[in-house]
Write a protein that binds this DNA or RNA. Structure first.
Lengths: 122, 122
DNA sequence: ATTATATTCATCCAAAAGGTTGAATATATG
DNA sequence: CATATATTCAACCTTTTGGATGAATATAAT
């Protein structure tokens, strides 16, 4: 990625989501704000490991931190999710065109060639 | 991630999306299927690098490959996108509750405190 | 003032990502 | 056959992840 350092925001958001522990942290925070130690207590990994996950979630703009004394309260920050959904919706425009084309072929009785559709191996 | 190896599918899909080159590859494929070399010609990196990106996109179930002679034709595979959107929608249910709470506070004239949520920290 | 709690920082490690180059493997084409 | 093309495989390098542990820092409580 030496030749491209725009779109970092979406990168960071998607990367932060691409880990089951971090998604679980988000799920916990969806039930209300919590301190770092509270969050960490639900995971079999070290507090420090959770602290690192939280940093990545912040980098992805998925959570935010409010420091009060020695406690760091975390809460969700839904802005980034909207950005992802916008991107997905934009992509899906093309993808659904693709899907529609496949459906048309099937509808016309053309046998599904190995590429255009593997459609439900069901 | 020694303690958790379920949910790998979503992991692989999101990780595959968390790179601008790979998202550009998807954008190219959204305009129709293409061979590996055709895709690679649009990027300033080596063919091998693109080949690796393609492997990650396959692992994320975002594209599929049809081999015809020496040519490998790639096309989009929208299934995974649906999985992501389902996950996002499920999450957003909670997140929008959170947003609604913030909106309520603002509506009541409470100044936006840095943490955006003074809901029961009991 | 001392101790306990909450959190990060620093370091280390193994594995993976993202890139390179060079070789191998098919498959077309002359 | 010989050669060119399409693609992957195999190393290698550097940076980042995801984990661990131990030390540092800041704040709270006794």
């Amino acid at each position: 990625m030496l030749y491209r350092h725009n779109s970092d925001e979406l990168d960071n958001t998607l990367l932060a989501l691409a880990d089951p522990t971090r998604r679980e942290i988000l799920a916990h925070l969806s039930r209300g704000e919590a301190r770092v130690t509270e969050v960490a207590s639900h995971f079999p990994i070290s507090l420090n490991a959770v602290s690192k996950h939280i940093r990545l979630l912040e980098r992805g703009r998925l959570i935010q931190r409010r420091i009060q004394g020695r406690d760091h309260f975390l809460c969700l920050r839904p802005v980034a999710i909207v950005a992802i959904q916008e991107w997905l919706t934009h992509q899906q425009h093309f993808w659904q065109v693709n899907l529609a084309a496949i459906a048309d072929l099937l509808d016309a009785g053309i046998p599904p060639s190995p590429h255009t559709s593997k459609r439900k191996k069901s």
